[in-house]
Design a protein around this nucleic acid. Structure first.
Lengths: 244, 244
DNA sequence: GCAAAAGTGTTCGGAGTACACCCATGT
DNA sequence: ACATGGGTGTACTCCGAACACTTTTGC
């Protein structure tokens, strides 16, 4: 049995994209009282876990992701660390930790990661708790400091998306240009002109057009594209677009 | 007496700029043996410290900076966290920690910050150890995982400098355009054409030309400029230069 | 045939790039 | 007078922004 390091944890903000929404994977947190149907409170947390004593934090984040989705090789990036002395001290948080046999006064560092994947079926139970996709804009008050972590994750995602081609990570392997445009519109909270957007992406050699089209749609079927990381790594120019 | 939290620390990569060099502030680490003149090893560390039990990590980083420089309001940014299980396990590191009365087997999370300031006089002693500026390219093997932290700090600085106006933070309040150009050339490891560079910065409203010139230089004295953060915040357009 | 999204071209202004010479000062 | 870095303009190309209509499919 591997031992946990009880003062280091990772929290993963798992983003998923679907049609025209950005989703986040949340876990139910329900604290029951004495009676079976006696619920003291119910809310949600981000996904996360303590790290094992001999494990790196990156491995811990990948482990959390794998346990939830069964997927490996997911886009995952460390974006910020949270260690405020009061981050676990709200009343419900203390109760939850106590109930869970943990020390609510222990100061825990949490290293924040965000992950990107296409919204799809994931394990719906995780350590006996329910897991579900929730649209970003419908997320209410979360446990601990998870609202703060979530906000920072979105900011990090935005900044990254502005300068590096990671929108693809939120789409299935094959996608249409309209889906790609939508991803960027949602992430960056803006709108693009369709013709200008297509002119722009047409210059990107690492966006490979396929000889394949959508099927089963009630309109002209769109061409499918793939992202090629190899071509990207080879052709990317280190642009000094440089501060402006 | 405030108590330290013995498993959370901050490491600060303090960058300074001078003429045409990027410097980093390092602290001597000399472990003496039994005899007075018996030196077991001598190398360098980044600046850093454990955090106090009730302190935020940002406050701890600012405290380290203040202790070293006497300055407040310095540009400071959290860039990455280091928590590899073996990060303190090199032989010399173990000896040093033992000598210092600390437990070399305790896993310590270190939250990395980088700071930017104009190279200038700083406290030359800190907790009984010597402190000095060292040009980035002359830095050899450092203690612990500090080479890794340093590398990551430079990468973070570069990425930030490409998209946000932080080059100013490495210069005195009033500076010339040639100094500014040099800062960016050093950070980004490239060269710019003087005329094009000036055309570019001329568009930036937050770069304020002063009615003041250099004095005491053996050539045509250059005009001085200031950076206005207020103007920047007001006029910056959130550019979606967007991945390319 | 109609609803729905796919796909396509032109014009204009602004920014990046390449490139060479005169100017003001201290010594 | 000379060495040193300061300061300036033009031509060309490419990119971003604005803007409207035809095409292909499922129903």
């Amino acid at each position: 049995m591997r031992k946990y390091c009880d003062y280091i944890s990772v929290d993963c903000v798992i983003f998923g994209f679907e049609i025209d929404r950005l989703n986040v994977l949340l876990v139910d947190r329900t604290l029951r009282g004495e009676g079976e149907s006696d619920i003291e409170f119910a809310d949600h947390t981000l996904t996360g876990n303590h790290i094992y004593e001999t494990e790196t934090v990156g491995d811990a984040a990948n482990r959390v992701l794998y346990d939830l989705t069964g997927l490996t090789g997911i886009y995952l990036e460390q974006f910020k660390t949270f260690a405020h002395p009061d981050r676990l001290k709200k009343e419900n948080d203390r109760k939850w930790l106590l109930h869970d046999g943990r020390d609510p006064d222990k100061r825990i560092v949490s290293i924040g990661y965000f992950a990107l994947l296409a919204t799809q079926d994931v394990t719906i139970e995780w350590k006996g708790r329910n897991v579900k996709w929730v649209p970003y804009h419908e997320i209410g008050e979360l446990a601990f400091d998870h609202n703060e972590i979530l906000e920072n994750a979105l900011i990090a995602l935005r900044n990254k998306a502005k300068h590096e081609p990671i929108g693809f990570e939120l789409l299935p392997e094959k996608f249409t240009l309209s889906q790609l445009q939508k991803v960027y519109e949602i992430i960056l909270d803006t709108e693009f002109d369709k013709r200008n957007f297509r002119k722009k992406v047409a210059r990107m050699k690492y966006l490979i057009p396929l000889d394949e089209k959508q099927t089963g749609v009630a309109h002209k079927p769109a061409r499918l594209y793939m992202f090629s990381r190899e071509v990207y790594e080879k052709t990317k120019k280190d642009l000094f677009d440089f501060w402006v």
